[in-house]
Design a protein around this nucleic acid. Structure first.
Lengths: 181, 181
DNA sequence: ACAGGTGTAAAACGATCGTTTTACACCTGT
DNA sequence: ACAGGTGTAAAACGATCGTTTTACACCTGT
């Protein structure tokens, strides 16, 4: 495990568990087991570190949900929540803590959300066929269900994901039926 | 407008726009146009102020969604977002920033979310009838749709709420149909 | 008339923040 | 052999944090 990987994984853990602004550079250097000089050489500063953590998480999360069906998508989300815990979307949390006032962070968040939306659009298209007229609506609805289960899981547990999955399944089935008429 | 109301409304605005940890007591006293001595007498401290802001917002939000139908619920949410903006659920943001490590804040957040869940359960019950077997599932699904549209609206705009509304309507209609068979 | 409550302005508290600097040590490739 | 890169430990930077204190002023009810 490279020194850079150790920095990113320990920082991600601290940011996720205690919040971005509440985590000090001192805690970050101690958790990464390196000197502040080394941390600053690698990350540039706290904003750069947040940016790097979000970019790494984007890659990891996008890989986790790189599936071909709605069922697999929700299974991947259940698995992610089981291993990572349920503390809400780390990207939206970063955006909220920075108040949208740090362009580097806003950019990283919006880039992730654009990729996230595109991924869902792709899966919905694979599910309904490329010519279905309701692709956009369904994509938006599945996206809302996933964002919602991510938020709701914080206080309702993984049942929120199961319920969202059932809703998604019904929406897809109903949309298939409507187009069949 | 009392001095306490001015403090709570200006603090809510700052916390919402810049984040809780990023907002300093200095900014809060200046926005409330009072001395720090007065602020501390009224709020106790920063944690007390966050707590008071969340409690006040809970009352205001619960009043806004005190409706009798799913349609009115989503209309209320559209209206809320139009006047308040879309920066995510302030309660979950507070919880995330505090890392769940400040009991007073955790309590305020969880109390709100319990009331929020109960409110949705009440509306779903009014919509489907008290004896419908799927009340719990529908409640959880509507809750997920609302949490999701609150999060998604940050980067997808109010369309997310419209899509969630359509999904909720279809889920309710389908659940009615299933029980009719 | 005067006590109690409520307010201001400003200085000060110690603690901590993110960041930089200094002085030094160890590899590694040529 | 030695330069360059990469690392540590520790001190120091000025700025800012949340909070408390001091000294003073104005209402308001009795």
């Amino acid at each position: 495990m490279s020194i850079k990987t150790k920095l990113l994984t320990s920082a991600e853990r601290l940011f996720d568990q205690h919040g971005f602004m509440s985590t000090s550079m001192d805690q970050l250097t101690k958790a990464a087991d390196m000197s502040s000089r080394t941390l600053y050489k690698h990350a540039g500063g706290k904003t750069g570190l947040v940016q790097a953590v979000l970019t790494a998480r984007d890659k990891r999360f996008m890989q986790a949900i790189d599936v071909q069906s709605i069922d697999d998508l929700f299974a991947a989300l259940q698995n992610w929540t089981l291993t990572e815990g349920a503390r809400g979307c780390l990207f939206l949390r970063a955006y909220g803590e920075a108040g949208g006032e740090t362009p580097e962070i806003t950019d990283a968040v919006m880039a992730h959300k654009a990729a996230f939306h595109a991924q869902i659009a792709r899966i919905v298209k694979a599910e309904l066929g490329a010519n279905h007229p309701d692709l956009e609506l369904l994509t938006e609805q599945i996206l809302v269900l996933i964002e919602g289960s991510t938020s709701a899981a914080i206080y309702r547990g993984t049942d929120a994901i199961t319920s969202a999955h059932q809703a998604a399944t019904l929406l897809i089935a109903q949309t298939r039926k409507d187009s069949g008429i």
